[in-house]
């Protein structure tokens, strides 16, 4: 049986990081996850990553000017937002092809992260 959900004051506070990935080859959700977790583990280790509460909520592949762009939302703990952000500059390669992550913005809900940074206007 599923556990009863925690009362609001005991739940972990979350923030949603909107990010974009530019890559030479098309990249899917599993590859995005393995890149982020790999870099986070390399920089902060298992102990550090365990406190980040990381979760890739959703990603949207889009193509712009012959460039592979993937936009996505990453959930993390409210206290560790800037630590999670610092992982992105260290990701530079995937299977020999170049890839780069940029943060688009930080938001308190998935809905506003999507409307502000992923699909503005």
């Amino acid at each position: 049986m599923k556990l009863k959900i925690l009362p609001p004051h005991l739940r972990n506070k979350k923030r949603y990081l909107a990010f974009e990935v530019l890559s030479e080859k098309p990249i899917n959700r599993e590859e995005v996850i393995s890149l982020i977790w790999g870099a986070a583990g390399g920089l902060y280790g298992s102990c550090g990553v365990s406190s980040f509460d990381l979760w890739v909520v959703k990603i949207w592949p889009c193509k712009f000017r012959e460039q592979n762009i993937v936009k996505g939302i990453l959930r993390c703990s409210r206290e560790e937002v800037s630590t999670v952000r610092s992982i992105f500059p260290l990701i530079n390669r995937y299977k020999g092809k170049r890839v780069v992550f940029h943060t688009l913005g930080i938001s308190g809900t998935i809905k506003s992260a999507k409307s502000k940074f992923i699909k503005p206007g």
């Binding site: 530019l22 030479e24 952000r85 610092s86 992105f88 500059p89 530079n92 170049r98 890839v99 780069v100 940029h102 943060t103």
Partner: peptide, 8 residues
């Protein structure tokens, strides 16, 4: 692929 956002 080498450029990063200043806030990052």
């Amino acid at each position: 692929y080498d450029l990063h956002s200043p806030l990052d």
